[in-house]
Design a protein around this nucleic acid. Structure first.
Lengths: 166, 166
DNA sequence: GTAGCGTAGTTGAGCGCTTGACTATTCCGC
DNA sequence: GCGGAATAGTCAAGCGCTCAACTACGCTAC
């Protein structure tokens, strides 16, 4: 995918092309992560009407004591831009699963609040989601592979977004 | 994310909830893969005007002897639906990077052909892409972690899409 | 040959995301 | 306190993807 193009035309120095093994590792990671995310998202969407992105929003809200969270914090937590989250919350509001509430401490802020209907929707979706993750991911891996997955996932996370490390 | 919801309301049997370690492994994988793909796609798009999805199409075509491929085959190769690929090829055609050609052997078929302009665009983008992959992925991992990543990716691939295994 | 079915690919409507501009509020230095 | 910068969130335009319908061609059986 990358080495088939001749290594000329470089802005700064010779690019460090991938060797055959690196290409195989890269492709295995790329394809498997795309296929897995796609499959889980499709199953969840078709069986519950909740996309994985929306599911993550509902989960994040459900995990707070008051089932509410500042819009920005929620966006960060869900790897979402503010704009994207704002749109998503509007659509969840139309379903009656979330409502907006002005933030008492900060007049600029809004709180997204999970409604009882939203919590019920999440309760319905959670078993579908977790079974999918187990069937498509954990059931396919040995305990050593799971440990390795976590290890290198955390190594990447440390680089990509250290604040998200436990 | 999944265990915070009480385990009632199951269609078929008790769901196999994730324990704490499994949740950490799952989240590390989910966040790191989303962040990495997002970062690589953004860098490529902003610096070259070519999204990762389009890049994959150009790469696939460039790797064939005649720089052409049947639409369906190209869609499979790029983890794309036929519809999505058809739209994408139309847009690449507008840029002059790909052209369509009727297939001689099968009157229903179309061939997507990489033009010289398309190949030149790929040559310009490839160093950006490979440097991104190296900087954000390989430079962050030990050789052992790279090997584990490949092992794990291939294990998933064997389950998700055996035909894609080498 | 032609009916019926399967396959290849395209198209249009609708939806969600991105970008960038915009409003409103708060924070900070003087 | 007051003016300017920073922050929170929203909104509109445009783009890419999904879904389902659709056209066109090939294959098989009769």
């Amino acid at each position: 995918m990358t080495a088939s193009v001749s290594p000329e035309s470089l802005p700064t120095g010779e690019p460090r092309w991938l060797d055959t093994d690196e290409q195989k590792a890269w492709r295995a990671w790329l394809y498997s992560s795309q296929l897995l995310q796609d499959r889980l998202d499709r199953e969840l969407t078709h069986r519950t009407g909740i996309s994985h992105a929306y599911y993550e929003i509902l989960v994040a809200l459900s995990e707070t004591p008051e089932r509410m969270m500042r819009m920005s914090e929620l966006a960060d937590r869900c790897l979402s831009s503010r704009s994207r989250l704002s749109h998503a919350v509007s659509r969840l509001e139309e379903r009656g699963w979330v409502r907006r509430q002005v933030c008492a401490e900060d007049g600029r802020g809004q709180l997204a609040v999970l409604t009882d209907e939203g919590f019920a929707a999440l309760e319905g979706a959670a078993p579908i989601h977790v079974e999918g993750v187990r069937r498509e991911l954990f059931d396919q891996l040995s305990p050593e592979q799971v440990a390795a997955m976590r290890d290198f996932g955390e190594a990447l996370l440390r680089h990509l977004d250290p604040s998200r490390m436990p």
